[in-house]
Design a protein around this nucleic acid. Structure first.
Length: 348
DNA sequence: GACCAGGCCAGCG
DNA sequence: CGCTGGCATGGT
């Protein structure tokens, strides 16, 4: 079994290109100290649904029951026991595009713990009612804009698992190492770091035809974002992404653009239309046509929380018709056990 | 060994 | 505009 998983890993980074880039230290210098631990009381929140929903690529469920991941250059271990969210963090403060926050405040913001997405469910729509009830407690995570941009460009026509591997490959190759509880993690690289890489680099690492697009997008964003992209305000990110959408060749079309809007730019009315959305739109609602038309239909119908409406239906349809998502992250979780056999949440 | 995957894009009508 | 194929790679 061990040899099997090795075979499926991406090749190691090529040494010469690595040597040219030395990541600048930013933010959390305190991360080498002991973990910052605590607990947060929540209500109506479900950590498992939130982190396994398929939005994020750098979180995984480990055999010890903890969700482990890196967000905003900080390592987190999270688990939910009833309505209590337990955390261990690599720093006491976390830098975001809104400024620095104490870790508990950050988690409340990142996971939208206080958000109550109230969607309108037509009395006649049994699918939506069941879908919403099925995913109670799910929240969209506030992803780091640049990480989100690159991740979703890489996600095009690729399974989640492969996308996770590619995203983590970039982090391990070009991010900054963080040690946390005896284990190495990596931050997601800055635009400047990826902007130095060209198409052939990604080609040689088997990114396929996403290669030129990632390179082009990173170069474009790096050119806009300036010297301190970590603190660029949200409005600037919105401008950058809107410009990116108009720039052909960056891999940001309708679907990827909507993913970034929804997952990183606070546009909860955005609906990414993928193959699954096309299917349930056709089968359940008799809406056909090109992606653009289905997107307009879904956004008009869902209103300001159209993104949540879509996510509920997406998850429900996939649960009925598609393969289940693997919620591990290979690089964080050593076990080769199928994720279905990993311990789930500590309820009660 | 087909066939498809959380699309995008250039090249056509 | 809207439609179609080609695109690299890995999984089933």
């Amino acid at each position: 079994m061990g040899e099997m998983s090795i075979k499926h890993r991406l090749p190691e980074r090529t040494a010469p290109e690595r040597a040219r880039y030395v990541p600048a230290l930013r933010g959390n210098h305190a991360s080498s100290r002991r973990p910052v631990t605590g607990r947060i009381e929540t209500s109506g929140f479900n950590l498992g649904y939130t982190l396994a929903g398929g939005q994020v690529f750098r979180w995984g469920r480990d055999v010890d029951g903890w969700w482990k991941g890196v967000a905003y250059d900080t390592v987190f271990h999270l688990r939910q026991a009833g309505d209590t969210l337990l955390y261990r963090a690599g720093a006491s403060r976390v830098a975001t595009y809104l400024g620095e926050m104490p870790v508990a405040v950050f988690l409340e913001w990142y996971l939208r713990l206080k958000e109550r997405p109230r969607i309108r469910v037509p009395r006649t729509d049994g699918y939506l009612r069941r879908a919403r009830d099925r995913l109670k407690g799910f929240r969209f995570v506030r992803q780091m804009p640049f990480e989100c941009i690159i991740s979703y460009i890489l996600s095009v026509q690729a399974h989640m698992n492969l996308t996770k591997r590619r995203v983590n490959f970039l982090a391990e190759s070009w991010g900054r190492e963080i040690e946390f509880m005896g284990r190495k993690y990596c931050t997601f690289p800055d635009p400047g770091a990826l902007a130095r890489l060209k198409g052939p680099y990604f080609r040689s690492n088997r990114f396929g035809w996403r290669s030129e697009r990632v390179a082009e997008a990173a170069r474009f964003v790096s050119g806009c974002a300036g010297s301190d992209p970590g603190r660029l305000p949200l409005d600037d990110w919105r401008e950058i992404v809107d410009a990116l959408k108009k720039q052909a060749g960056t891999g940001v079309g309708l679907k990827v653009g909507k993913c970034i809007d929804l997952f990183a730019l606070e546009r909860l009315d955005a609906v990414p239309v993928d193959t699954w959305v096309l299917k349930f739109a056709r089968e359940w609602y008799h809406v056909k046509g090109p992606d653009k038309k289905v997107c307009e239909w879904a956004e008009a119908r869902g209103g300001k929380y159209a993104g949540y409406v879509n996510e509920y239906l997406f998850a429900y349809y996939r649960e009925l018709n598609g393969p289940s998502l693997d919620d591990r992250v290979i690089s964080f979780c050593a076990s080769d056990a199928p994720s279905a056999e990993l311990p789930m949440l500590d309820e009660g």
